[in-house]
Each structure stands twice: as C-alpha cells, then as structure tokens.
Design a protein around this nucleic acid. Structure first.
Ligand SMILES: [Mn+2]
Ligand SMILES: [Mn+2]
Ligand SMILES: [Zn+2]
Ligand SMILES: [Zn+2]
Lengths: 155, 155
DNA sequence: CCAATAATGATAATCATTATCATTATGGTA
DNA sequence: TACCATAATGATAATGATTATCATTATTGG
C-alpha cells in the first residue's frame, strides 16, 4: 500500500513546541495559540489562510486575517508548517511531519482530490501507482536548498 | 555532473508543433505566434505572463495581457509549456522538454536562483548535491495524475 | 506604575489573474 | 464575393490573495 490518507486526529498543542517557540523570541499570544491549535486539530488537512481564520475565530473571536498570515508564514519558515501551492493560485498550510522532509502529494487533474504520499519511494513508484489505477500525467519536484554560493556565505 | 543550466538558444517555431496546434482546432493567429515565438527564443527561461507580454509585444505591438494568459494556459494544458510556481505568488512558464515529464528545479533559499535538474535521479541525488556544496532544506514533489475514480470515468 | 517594544487588527494598497463585453478577424458557404 | 456564424482579441472592470500601513493594545522588564 502506498497511499496514506490522514484524517483529522485531535491533538493537543505540544508543550515542547511551545517551549521552542518561546525560546525563539516568540510570544505565545492568544491569537497565535488559536492558529496553532487549529493546525493541530486539523492535522493532515491543507488549509488556506481564510479557512484558518474562520476556524481560529472560534477561539479568538476578533482575530484578524493579517495576524493569521503573519503567524502561518512564521510557523512555516520555522518548519512547523508546510506551505504548499496546489495549482489553485493560493497557498495552503499543513502541520509538518515530525521528521525533516515534507511528504508529497498527488493532485488529481480530474476532481482536484489530493492524495498524501509517503516520501522515500519514487522510482518504482509511478509504476505502482499506475497498477493501482492512477494515470500519471506529470510530476514536479521542487528542492529547497542553499546553493553553494549562499551556503558558503552564511554564518 | 548533475546540473544542467540551459541558456537561451534561438530556435525557430517547430512546424510540427504548428500542425499539431492547427489540428487541435487552434488558429495560429499573429498574437499566438508571437507568444510561442517568445517561448521558443527563450527556451530554458522561466517567464511570467507579464514578461511574455513585454517580449511578445515586439512582434505583435498591441497584444493584450488577457490573450497572453489565454495562450499560455492553453499551451500549458497541451503540454507544450510547463507552468510552475516558484514560491513567489505567481506562475512562470517555460518551454517543455521534448519528452514527457518535467525536469525539476532547485530553488535557492538564499538568493532565489533557480537551478535546472535532470529527472530520473533523486535517491542518491541529495547526497550528491550536498557533496557539490548545496545545503538541502526540503523538497516538494507534486504528481499530477488522474485518480483511479477519474481515470475510470473518462472516455 | 512607566517606558520601550512587540503584537494586533482594521483597512488600504498591491499584484496576479479572471471575467465581461464590445469589436475585429476568420472560415465556410450561398 | 458578400454574408453569417463563430472564434479571437483587447480594454477594462472585477476578483481574490497577500502585503503594507498605522493607530491601538498588550507585554515585559525595571
Ligand atoms: Mn499533505
Ligand atoms: Mn526549468
Ligand atoms: Zn479524481
Ligand atoms: Zn543562492
């Protein structure tokens, strides 16, 4: 079996994470806590900023969209969230996996459904997927890295 | 050697392509020809719609941005162009490789430079890249496919 | 409590993309 | 060739996502 469909599993805010954030000169405000809580509660979901806003307002009623953007982007740049673009002209955010790299996605050209995909695999992968009934049109891999120049010149 | 940096190589519009387009109930208008010409001339470049507009207006002076978008998107959906998002909130277009799948990109987190990457590789790849001086932070793979349901239900 | 600073939220501004729609170009046909 | 149906175009308005501003509020350390 290849596919991993993760459905929303409730999960409390990880105290370790909160510590980590506090150490990173990052105040745990009511608003930020609300945003993080939403991302935890909807682990596995790919949420737009607007969707996060709606959900988080239940915990922090007059939360503003600007704060949502600020919080999501900051968490993403700390590696706590993934920020991904599913060919719809906006970004979606998702709680990151515990380990380093991001898992992958299969985006159905027909219905737009998104299938979660474990990483590692890939070589024999497409054949396997075809055997399971998918019809693969294309794939895109994006590697985020520091190039040799930039890598050298950072402290 | 892994990297492939393609620099702009002049190339005429492929007559085979024009045939293909004509067969696809697609008129070869002055405007569309201008857009395609730009993409051919700048083979290897990742152009935004706006950039295509500016370049193509040299050939079709009062070309409008709407036509550029229409043309680019149509060519992309025919597989003649790639449409990719480099984490900057807009799409870029590039002449597709002759063979099926899209090549990949390494996006430097430091300077924003984009490195072209041959496909196939990938498993031992990251290690190789690290050896060559890159520092890899993350990667994202997006597979575009028909899911089993959609695949079944299309003629 | 006070001053310095960080965070917030309302709102305006920006930017990319899409929708409208009147006008123009094209291809087939009588 | 003149005519009609239809495709294509381009100016412009509309939309939608994201970012910038900035006055107000919250927090922290003294
Ligand atoms: Mn996911
Ligand atoms: Mn490329
Ligand atoms: Zn589907
Ligand atoms: Zn760099």
């Amino acid at each position: 079996m290849i596919m991993i469909i993760i459905i929303g599993v409730k999960k409390e805010l990880d105290p370790k994470l909160l510590d980590k954030l506090e150490k990173a000169e990052y105040r745990i405000t009511r608003q930020r806590r609300a945003v993080m809580k939403v991302m935890y509660e909807q682990k596995g979901a790919h949420l737009s900023a607007e969707e996060v806003l709606v959900a988080a307002r239940e915990k922090a009623p007059n939360l503003g969209i600007a704060t949502v953007y600020r919080t999501l982007d900051r968490l993403a740049s700390m590696g706590i969230l993934y920020k991904t673009e599913f060919n719809e002209g906006k970004y979606r955010y998702e709680l990151a996996d515990a380990d380093l790299h991001q898992h992958h996605h299969i985006l159905c050209i027909g219905c737009g459904k998104i299938f979660e995909l474990e990483e590692r695999l890939l070589d024999t992968l497409e054949q396997q997927l075809e055997r399971e009934g998918f019809h693969i049109i294309n794939h895109q891999l994006k590697i985020l890295a520091y190039c040799p120049d930039c890598n050298k010149s950072r402290k």
